[in-house]
């Protein structure tokens, strides 16, 4: 065993030896952790006190109060409208933007700027975009709609583009060989390969828009979020519980419907 006797010749150094730098870094990390816990004022007493506050909060949340159901329903309706408009128009726009961003169908001078645009749409959290739109188009549902359209484009156009980039090029070549135009290539060679994945992305985006449409209202962009926030500020915790239960049931209902949609397609 000529090659395996290196251990026998005094080369007994542990290959996983701990270096001095390694120890110093661990000590620094531990010191930082202690410092950060202290600077944020985290402590055992505070945590225990927090448990007490949580139990009072939950006591006051139950039973949920559905007396102001008209207010709840109008907020819910506005949230649904925001989610519906932003999903349908966002997904529709994303179809074209996704095709334009696909590197195997488009030359680089088209796909690179479009990809940059998608990245800009995705770079901020919806709440930050909502704050900007509330400033520019004012309080109300329109700001929420524009916010969620931007959010949908940022997320779903990227997924569409990547799904298109993974298609088999053979079918595209076969359709192209018949002399088909670009739109025919997209409709007959690309779409059949990616359509079921598009449906999956679209149902996910609708779910995400439903959740976000109940949240953008917190910064004044319309929907159930505004109702939720004002109920919280007035300490109407039983009404808060009613709103939360409504949101949960809305999401569960869409969960059921989206399985149905995916079974159809």
């Amino acid at each position: 065993m000529a090659g395996l006797n290196s251990m026998a010749e005094g080369n007994k150094q542990n290959p996983f030896n701990r270096s001095g730098w390694n120890i110093v870094l661990w000590i620094l990390a531990a010191a930082y952790l202690v410092y950060s816990v202290q600077s944020m004022g985290l402590s055992g007493e505070r945590f225990l006190a927090g448990l007490g506050h949580a139990s009072t909060l939950i006591d006051r949340m139950f039973p949920p109060n559905f007396e102001r159901w008209e207010l709840l329903l109008s907020g819910l309706g506005e949230s649904l409208e925001i989610a519906m408009i932003s999903s349908v128009s966002g997904i529709f726009l994303s179809l074209f933007i996704g095709v334009l961003a696909a590197r195997n169908l488009m030359p680089a001078w088209v796909s690179i700027p479009v990809r940059g645009f998608i990245a800009i749409c995705r770079s901020f959290h919806p709440v930050i975009i909502a704050i900007l739109f509330v400033k520019s188009v004012g309080f109300g549902a329109l700001a929420g709609i524009l916010t969620l359209i931007i959010a949908s484009i940022g997320f779903i156009a990227k997924l569409f583009a990547e799904a298109i980039e993974e298609i088999s090029i053979k079918q595209v070549e076969a359709i192209r060989a018949t002399g088909a135009s670009f739109s025919s290539v997209v409709i007959y060679a690309v779409m059949p390969q990616v359509f079921s994945r598009f449906i999956g992305f679209a149902t996910y985006q609708f779910d995400s828009n439903l959740r976000n449409s109940t949240m953008v209202g917190i910064v004044g962009a319309g929907g159930l979020g505004g109702t939720l926030f004002s109920a919280f500020q007035r300490f109407d915790y039983d009404f808060v519980a009613a709103i939360l239960i409504t949101i949960i049931s809305l999401i569960l209902l869409w969960e059921f419907l989206s399985t149905l949609v995916r079974r159809i397609f």
Partner: peptide
């Protein structure tokens, strides 16, 4: 249908939009 219904019933304040 949901889209068209939402477009018709959503409350948009035009003055704010012109001001955008």
């Amino acid at each position: 249908t949901g889209f068209l219904y939402s477009i018709r019933s959503v409350e948009v304040i035009p003055d704010f939009l012109y001001d955008a």
